[in-house]
Write a protein that binds this DNA or RNA. Structure first.
Length: 428
RNA sequence: GGAAAGGUGGCAGAGUGGUCGAACGCGCCGCUCUCGAAAAGCGGUAUGCUCGAAAGGGCAUCGAGGGUUCGAAUCCCUCCCUUUCCGCCA
């Protein structure tokens, strides 16, 4: 949610943002007139309440009764206008950052930089689902029978590889020296405070989901009817609200979490796309970074999160490119959206493996997560979330590290986390 | 799942229909005292909206929402949460 005063004073900026985000359905004039109407009704209501309070204090029963009746219509009107106003407010997307490219869809995203050379193979590299099926480590067929399409069993060494990457990444996120070096190498001046590991709940109340601005699109969410709970689509969904209605001390920030959880997505409207393997499945595993910082540090914070993502890919020797999403491809709550796309030799293209969302104060305003500044002012914190490790990195490892004999080598950095194993073997 | 108690300011905790935005204490901030600190004393110390140049005023908020009443922290209803006992359980 944006600040209504900001909208009022910067209507032209917001209008441009709406146009660029393809959200011209949002009617700013209507929103602002609802705001004025709400304010004037509120004032009338306040005046009436003042009289009511005075009458009650004087035990003036007759006058009190009269005012009470008079107030009923006013209250009803106010409630109606307020409801409309809130609905309109919630429909306004976040403003894109100044460095966000303007564009209609993903074709106008921009490559900021690339790292690594796609490896030349002496044979035709397979796609991850072929490797997975051949080695018996990804089983879609059984999952489809047992649960349904777009689910998978991970088996054998792939399971161990998963936890190897997880531990490897947690090792980075919890280590102040490594984080400092990552920041220094990327020339980002930032407090390298480590991430606190979290295993968050995977179910969430609708009201909380809404406060995270993540309830929509509802088509994309799984809902548990018996208890009116949603399954989270990312650990972000339950990490972000950990501090709702709280006021931080300035010196407490930044606060960084590394939350590991299953993530559930219905993938509505993607029928037929990426049906095989684990690229696009309904339930996957993800380690997510979530941070709360001072507003003036939030760009650096996102840059830092991206630097961490890049560091992970570099150490794993996975070629990648960094994409900044254009206005038309970014989410409603995003202020700046950066993706890491990792080279997938089997598909012969870069595919998204990480994303980094800079939300500015958009979520914290809804969550009411604030910070008391040194000078006593209270303002909303800025929030960032970004992937540290998701199942798609396993895909990248399988495809980049496949060998001609049908096996997959274990990246050097992960061997210690694999009990010394250097290759992924065929499962029975 | 059954039974009971309860949710009040940063913390702790009083308040069962009006004089309560809320006692007392702790904490925090300022001042006095002091070379300085501690102690002591004095004063201040919630959030949001709104009017105002400011001083200051108004409204709302005692878990959330609704209701009764001229008047609700206090009574009623629904929901959320916490604690205790019983049951169940990885």
């Amino acid at each position: 949610m944006l600040d209504i005063k900001f909208i009022k004073e910067n209507k032209d900026i917001v209008a441009v943002a709406l146009k660029n985000k393809n959200r011209e359905d949002v009617n700013l004039d209507e929103l602002l007139s609802l705001y004025e109407e709400k304010k004037s009704l509120r004032q009338k209501l306040d005046e009436l309440n003042q009289k009511k309070n005075e009458a009650a204090k004087d035990r003036n029963i007759e006058e009190g009764k009269r005012l009470k009746e008079e107030g009923e219509t006013l209250e009803k009107n106010f409630a109606e206008v307020d409801k409309k106003y809130l609905k309109a407010m919630l429909s306004v997307p976040n403003i894109p950052s100044l460095d966000t490219p303007i564009g209609k869809d993903e074709n106008e995203n921009k490559v900021l930089r690339t790292w690594g050379e796609p490896k030349a193979f002496s044979f035709k590299p397979k796609e991850h689902f072929e490797i997975g099926a051949d080695l018996g480590i990804i089983d879609n067929e059984t999952a489809t029978e047992v649960t349904g399409p777009r689910f998978a069993y991970l088996k054998g060494d792939l399971v161990q590889l998963h936890f190897a990457v997880l531990n490897f990444v947690y090792g980075i996120l919890g280590n102040k020296e490594i984080l400092k070096k990552i920041a220094d190498d990327a020339k980002i001046e930032i407090d390298p405070k480590p991430f606190l590991p979290v295993m968050p709940p995977v179910m969430i109340k609708p009201a909380t989901m809404n406060r995270m601005a993540r309830l929509e699109p509802r088509d994309e969410r799984y809902h548990i009817d018996s208890d009116d709970l949603y399954l989270i689509g990312s650990a972000e969904h339950t990490l972000g609200p950990m501090h709702m209605d709280e006021v931080f001390e300035e010196k407490e920030l930044p606060i960084r979490y590394a939350g590991y959880s299953n993530a559930f997505r219905r993938e509505a409207g993607t029928y037929g796309k990426d049906m095989k393997g684990i690229l696009r499945i309904h339930e996957f595993y993800k380690l997510e970074m979530e941070s709360f910082c001072l507003p003036e540090n939030s760009y650096k914070e996102q840059d830092f999160l991206v630097a961490i993502q890049e560091h992970i890919n570099k150490v794993l020797n996975l070629p990648y490119q960094i994409i900044i999403c254009c206005t038309g491809d970014m989410g409603d709550p995003d202020h700046r959206h950066i993706d890491v796309e990792t080279w997938m030799p089997g598909q012969n293209k870069y595919r998204e493996t990480h994303s980094a969302d800079h939300m500015a104060g958009f979520q914290s305003r809804r969550l009411n997560t604030r910070v008391k500044r040194a000078d006593g002012r209270i303002e909303h914190v800025h929030m960032n979330d970004a992937t540290a490790f998701a199942g798609r990195t396993l895909i990248a490892i399988l495809e980049n590290y496949q060998t001609e004999d049908g096996k997959v080598a274990v990246p050097e950095a992960l061997v210690p986390f694999m009990g010394g194993k250097t290759h992924i073997e065929k499962a029975f």
